[in-house]
Nucleic acid binder design. Structure first.
Length: 594
RNA sequence: GGUUCCAUAGCUCAGCUGGAUAGAGCAACGGUUUUCUAAACCGUGGGCCGCAGGUUCGAGUCCUGCUGGAACUACCA
């Protein structure tokens, strides 16, 4: 069945061509959903036509309306308001649409894996400290974007690049060696990532003390920062690591192992996963090799001290360092290596990096370098840049302890969900396991919706003092709507859907509901185009709102008219289905009851 | 200094490629349950859409300038 928008465009193109002797294709006709304040389903704006019609807006609109009224097979009625032609579609279209799609579980989704190969890299943590709220935004965004792309028919794989190497982990290692007394996650009764994070903080504390002492002795801050005993020792560990010193590598492996265990627990709770892991310790050497190649091709150049650079002044940027004078690699070197490795593994058409907007410059540089060295995958890389999560006092900073820990936050959400659910007396009849499952679902639903509803590009505010809402435009509101529908469906005795759909009359509420459901495929498409889960969130909220209005205005199970009652039940099924599918795109589960 | 991004109700945010009287939630106040889940529904108040120009039949949306904020501009990752 052709979709209704296309049909209307055809009809309009036909009308306009006949009336004004032009040759417009249906493609050129723009229609939009009629504003709620007016009668109609779709609206055609005539202003762009005025130069051709050579008449006023109202007169032109009336001429078109007059022409369209001759054929009522698709369009039932037309109303003209100033330059706007408001079209009302035949009711049978809406009822048929509902019957056809209510039980179609792939409604809104494209044929699987018919489009390009896309690789999405997300999460990409450092291994010296636990995950925080910023990482949660990253993880949820990455996961959701993957689901959205899959729903649109892309062949998608995910990966996580672990920054397991570098001065940051050496800092934790040094502090642990100095102060740890062999402490382990088991002995400390602490998640491994938190334990390693504890030593990172300990390092920073000691480093700060030593730095202040050096400043007292007359050194400037920058020099002092480099000259503390802690920092020199951490640097020494990094050198030993690069030289392959066994004892150092053993400590490194052990501590990273603790961190991975901790990360995996957090990932599992968040519900995110990865097809493939990459480790910086395994990609940076390849990066170095690529720099050497580029040097020989003449894409890069060497300075007197032996450091290697790329000149991007022609592209409006500066010169950028690729290898230090001592031959060690920098961040971009490693990313060149990873890009090559990823392409080799996945042969992607598009490679999406879910990384914060503080690295906009970095990715601009990376893309230019890949293009300069004629890599076939240069044009396919795309930086999905998202804004920082800020606290009322500003940006989160690990070393200053102003971070909202991921595990703590999830625990808070769980506790809040438990509190509210218990207060509302909704734990009755549920086993302890079922209760915990429910608190988890609701708590995470609130958190995920809270983070995903904001446009990814924009920075967002989180105030730890004000807990995340469970009412209004929130995840639990949508989950509640789903549970409410499921409750109605459970109570429905007559589940046969044999009835005369021609007898169904659509009230304003029912029609709004159907129109809302009708939008879903377009929304899924839009979310993929913009790589924005927020689009899905807004849609879920609107749809849930529409259902609650309908629910309040109409009785479903007690409706006397059998045709009408059965149609409403179908609408319920359809709505629950779409909420469920839309929730899946966000990683939000829809409970059967709550 | 340079580059990029942002600015909408007291607060947190929507507003699709320019379209009709700028919308939600929270917070405040008031109402709705003998009836399918009240985590709901309805209502009231609250806006020079940062400022000034420009393009257009039409600008929160596009262009220019200005003000305010953020990030980047490291031989850190």
């Amino acid at each position: 069945m052709k979709n209704i928008q296309e049909s209307i465009k055809e009809i309009l193109a036909n009308a306009v061509n006949q009336l004004y002797q032009i040759d417009w294709k249906p493609m050129q006709i723009v229609i939009e959903a009629t504003s709620a304040d007016f009668e109609g389903d779709f609206t055609f704006v005539v202003f762009p036509l005025l130069k051709i019609s050579k008449k006023g807006p109202e007169q032109t609109a009336n001429e078109i309306a007059e022409y369209l009224r001759k054929d009522t097979t698709v369009i039932a009625s037309i109303e003209v308001v100033k330059g706007f032609v408001n079209l009302t579609v035949q009711t049978s279209y809406w009822t048929n649409f509902t019957l056809l799609n209510a039980q179609n579980i792939s409604f809104g989704y494209s044929t699987p894996q018919s489009k390009e190969n896309v690789l999405v890299e997300y999460s990409s943590p450092n291994t010296n400290k636990p995950l925080h709220l910023g990482h949660i935004r990253n993880n949820l965004l990455g996961f959701s974007v993957i689901q959205i792309l899959k729903a649109n028919g892309y062949h998608v794989k995910s990966c996580n690049l672990i920054n397991d190497r570098g001065i940051h982990i050496c800092k934790s290692m040094y502090a642990w060696l100095q102060q740890g007394n062999g402490e382990t996650p088991a002995s400390a009764q602490m998640k491994g990532d938190h334990l390693v994070g504890k030593y990172y903080v300990a390092f920073e504390k000691q480093h700060k003390l030593e730095k202040e002492a050096l400043i007292q002795n007359g050194l400037d801050e920058e020099t002092a920062s480099k000259q503390t005993k802690s920092m020199l020792q951490a640097q020494e560990l990094l050198r030993k690591w690069e030289a392959g010193d066994q004892a150092t590598i053993d400590v490194w492996k052990t501590m990273n192992g603790w961190v991975y265990e901790g990360f995996n627990a957090t990932y599992k709770q968040l519900g995110v996963e990865f097809d493939q892991y990459y480790y910086e310790s395994e990609t940076y050497l390849l990066g170095k090799k690529l720099v050497e190649e580029g040097l020989q091709q003449g894409s890069f150049f060497k300075k007197e001290n032996g450091s290697v650079w790329v000149d991007l002044t022609a592209d409006g940027l500066d010169q950028k360092l690729l290898l230090r004078a001592d031959g060690t690699s920098v961040y971009i070197t490693q990313d060149m290596g990873t890009a090559a490795l990823k392409y080799n593994d996945f042969k992607y058409d598009k490679s999406i990096y879910v990384v914060g907007n503080e690295q906009d410059y970095h990715f601009k540089v990376l893309q230019l370098i890949l293009a300069k060295t004629n890599k076939p995958y240069a044009s396919g890389i795309y930086h999905l840049s998202y804004g920082m999560v800020e606290l009322p006092e500003g940006k989160m900073k690990s070393r200053e302890g102003t971070v909202v820990d991921a595990d703590d936050l999830m625990q808070d959400m769980f506790d809040n969900a438990k509190q509210i659910t218990t207060d509302l007396g909704k734990t009755e009849g549920l086993s302890l396991d079922e209760q915990n499952q429910l608190f988890q679902t609701i708590g995470l639903g609130a958190l995920k919706y809270f983070l995903l509803k904001v446009d990814p590009k924009k920075k967002m505010m989180f105030n730890p003092k004000e807990s995340i809402d469970f009412q209004g435009n929130t995840g639990p509101f949508i989950q509640y709507t789903h549970a409410r529908i499921k409750s109605v469906l459970r109570n429905a005795k007559d589940t046969s859907f044999e009835f005369d759909s021609n007898q169904v009359k659509l009230s304003a509420f029912e029609k709004n509901m159907v129109k809302g459901l009708h939008q879903f495929p377009g929304i899924v498409d839009e979310a993929a185009r913009d790589l924005s889960p927020g689009v899905i969130c807004n849609y879920c909220y609107d749809l849930a709102k529409l259902f609650n209005q309908l629910y309040h205005e109409h009785s479903i199970l007690k409706e006397q008219d059998e045709n009408q009652r059965k149609f409403r039940l179908i609408l319920c099924m359809f709505t629950a289905q779409v909420l469920n599918r839309a929730g899946a795109l966000l990683g939000i589960q829809m409970p059967e009851r709550m």
